[in-house]
């Protein structure tokens, strides 16, 4: 599922299709694919076991709240060093403070405290 603002922003649709997966596209202005957000597509689906997601934090949170199955989310934070030294990108998780750059950026849904 790929979400964009508008038709001209769409990228990697063909590349994902080439991998042999079913690709759904949404655009906020409705100029291509489903009008709305990726969550609007997710609501129409039935039958999935797990999810992987990356993108803006607001989208990640919306997906996290919508989907009940387990999943993995690639988080975004402003980082100072990117190697785990400056503690700039720390989040609190159920397993204690974690550095997004070093311990992540992919976290299990169950770890997050959203």
């Amino acid at each position: 599922m790929l979400g964009f603002n508008s038709k001209e922003d769409v990228f990697y649709e063909q590349e994902f299709k080439n991998l042999g997966v079913e690709v759904y596209v949404s655009t906020v202005d409705g100029s291509y694919g489903t009008k709305g957000f990726v969550t609007d597509i997710i609501k129409t689906l039935n039958g999935y076991d797990f999810y992987y997601t990356c993108g803006p934090m607001n989208m990640l949170k919306a997906v996290y709240e919508l989907i009940e199955t387990s999943g993995e989310l690639s988080l975004e934070e402003r980082m100072g060093c990117g190697i785990g030294a400056c503690m700039g990108c720390t989040i609190n998780t159920k397993n204690g403070p974690k550095r997004v750059c070093y311990n992540g950026p992919v976290f299990k849904k169950e770890e997050l405290m959203w």
Partner: peptide
């Protein structure tokens, strides 16, 4: 734990941090 994020902001020739002694 320190301060809430964002704790980092880029600047010209430097950066701002607000880690807060994590």
């Amino acid at each position: 734990f320190g301060n809430p994020t964002p704790r980092i902001a880029e600047c010209t020739a430097g950066l701002i941090n607000s880690v807060g002694l994590q």
